[in-house]
C-alpha cells in the first residue's frame, strides 16, 4: 500500500516582488505593496509530502532523520533569515511564493533520493498557500 507522509518546516525570509520586464508604474500596479523597494518578510511554513510503500523492516515510508537532515541543510540553511531576492535562483526570477514552491520542489526532487517526492506546499501567511507537484501532475 502506498502511504503519503507530510512533514512541516518553518523559515523566515524577506522578499520584494519586482520584475525588470515591467516599468516602475507597472510593477507598482501589479505587485502593490509587495513592490515596496525595501522589501518585507514572512514566516513561511513548508510542507514536504513524500510517498512510497511502507518499509517492512522499519515501518516507515522514509526515515524522518534523513528528510529533516536534507531539508535543514539544503532548504532551511539556504533560505532562513535571508533576502530571497539575493539567493541565486531569484536573480532573474521574481521570488513569489509560486516560484519559491517550484524552487524547493526542484531542490528536493534533485537531491533527496530516499523517497518519492509527492508535493511541496507553502503557506506564506495564514490566508494563502501554494502547491507544486511537478509538471507531470498538471
Amino acid at each position: 500500500m502506498i502511504v503519503h507522509l507530510t512533514r512541516r518546516y518553518m523559515f523566515s525570509a524577506s522578499h520584494r516582488l519586482h520584475s525588470e520586464q515591467f516599468s516602475e508604474e507597472e510593477n507598482r500596479a501589479i505587485y502593490g505593496k509587495c513592490n515596496n523597494p525595501y522589501g518585507h518578510g514572512h514566516n513561511y511554513m513548508i510542507e514536504i509530502s513524500v510517498s512510497g510503500p511502507v518499509d517492512g523492516q522499519t515501518g516507515m515510508v522514509c526515515n524522518l532523520f534523513d528528510l529533516d537532515g536534507f531539508v535543514r541543510s539544503q532548504i532551511l540553511e539556504r533560505y532562513d533569515h535571508q533576502n530571497l531576492n539575493l539567493v541565486a535562483e531569484f536573480t532573474n526570477t521574481v521570488p513569489t511564493t509560486e516560484n519559491l514552491c517550484i524552487a524547493i520542489y526542484e531542490i528536493v526532487q534533485r537531491g533527496f533520493m530516499k523517497a518519492h517526492l509527492q508535493k511541496v506546499r507553502i503557506e506564506e501567511t495564514m490566508m494563502n498557500s501554494f502547491e507544486y507537484a511537478g509538471e507531470e501532475s498538471r
Binding site: 500500500m1 502506498i2 502511504v3 507522509l5 507530510t6 512533514r7 512541516r8 518546516y9 515510508v61 524522518l64
Partner: peptide, 21 residues
Amino acid sequence: TPDLFVDVYGDAAEQNLHGAA
C-alpha cells in the same frame, strides 16, 4: 504532531488489493 501527518488513499489501497502496489 501538528508538523507530521500521513495519508492513505483508497485508490492506493485498491491497487494493493489487486496486487499492483
